[in-house]
Simulated assay, not measured.
Amino acid sequence: MDTFDSKNELDDRVVGMKKIGLVLGKFAPLHKGHQLLIETALAEMDLLKLIIYDSPEVTRIPLAVRSGWIRCLYPEVEVIEAWNGPSQVGYSQELMRQHERYVIEELGVAGITHFYSSEPYGEHMSHALGAVDRRVDVERIQIPISATKIRRDSHGYKDYMESLVYRDLITNVAILGAPSTGKTTLSRALAGCFNTQWMPEYGREYWEKYQIDRKLQPHELIHIAEQHLNMETTRLNVANRYLFTDTTALTTATFCRYYHGYVPERLQLLADMSPSRYDLTFLCDIDIPYEDTWDRSGDGQRNVFQRQIVQMLGYYKIPYIVLSGTLEQRVATVSSVLSRYQKYTNILEVLNCNPL
């Protein structure tokens, strides 16, 4: 078996040839051990191909998300999405032949000179490809991590993942509602309940410093939406399973339309991102007493803003769950949904199978 543990020990058979490497896996999720493998191959090869399996039996993270990580971090890699690859793994002759036939016959992979892995399957796959069996960090000494460990405790092993990968493992929960509907109190309480982060409404902080006659100009509302997203991303990088986000660009756009009669293109673009940015959306009801403070515009306006937010959610076809009652009741409702929801699954199936 031609197994090499350093880049200087290359097979004489491929000296002078264009070196084409191949890596395959589920990358569920992509971690720094995978990256060591990919980066080693890139340093040694003229061209690197990477096969990524769909593997719904192992992970709910969509194939498009996982392949997107690799394309973003390593644009020079040729990524091949394997949608119907064998679901079983093992070292029986039958299973090994299934994987070999799939890669070579169904995907049509050919011309590989080096097969890169950190696993025993490197032996049979490289032999089938007629390639050098190149193993990297087999004992996990350089990068002591596995995807299995991360799937069990993503927060505990977050340092073994790039930020853009870790963020995609966090369930981003949007808490919406008109002013004085309890969004801030609820978001803070949920963060404490789940030992994680929450994203305060940046617009409120900005408004208190810079408002004139209780209004902000369109360019200021654009700034608010942009800065809120930047701060939200920072919190996603350190959140534990969930991030509870108080208000989104949808609300900022709603306020802009109400006060100025239009939404600037940039703010509209940020609002348009909301349907794909948030995994779950909760709408705080107006069934709690209105807190008539100097910085608010009255209970009547609260009703108007609430109707506008509801219509905005309808416009974007965003499913949402209304939260009514006391703080304790609202926390209980959110907790009940989260106990049954998993990121990248259909929330409507959760609610239909297990009505609240």
Rank of each mutant, 00 (worst) to 15 (best):
G203S: 09
C353T: 09
T281V: 14
L36Y: 05
P75T: 12
Q98K: 15
S146C: 00
L356K: 06
Y316D: 01
E265H: 00
Y121F: 14
A41V: 04
P355Q: 07
Y91A: 00
D2W: 13
S118W: 00
V263C: 06
V322S: 11
D133F: 13
N237K: 09
S297L: 10
K19V: 11
I286T: 08
Y157A: 06
N346G: 14
L48D: 06
H219D: 15
G16F: 03
G130R: 12
V14M: 10
W294S: 12
T247S: 14
N84S: 08
Q217R: 13
Y121R: 09
T59L: 06
K19R: 14
S339E: 09
D213F: 05
T196W: 03
S126H: 08
H127G: 05
K26S: 11
R71H: 01
S154N: 08
Y53C: 11
M125P: 01
M96T: 05
E81D: 13
W207R: 00
Q98W: 10
K317M: 07
Q311L: 04
L356T: 03
R241H: 03
D159I: 14
G192C: 06
L73H: 08
L216Q: 07
M312G: 00
E76C: 01
H114S: 13
L48Y: 05
L22E: 13
L356F: 15
Y102P: 14
E349D: 15
T333C: 12
K149M: 13
N237G: 05
L221M: 13
L327C: 02
R340H: 14
E57C: 11
L250I: 15
R167T: 04
A128R: 13
V15R: 14
Y278V: 04
A43M: 06
V103N: 06
D287N: 14
R71S: 01
H228P: 03
G298M: 08
R167K: 14
L176R: 01
Y242R: 03
S67H: 08
N346Y: 15
S118G: 15
E265Y: 00
I150D: 10
A332E: 12
C72M: 12
E105W: 07
T40A: 02
A82P: 07
Y202D: 03
D11K: 04
Q342D: 11
R277K: 04
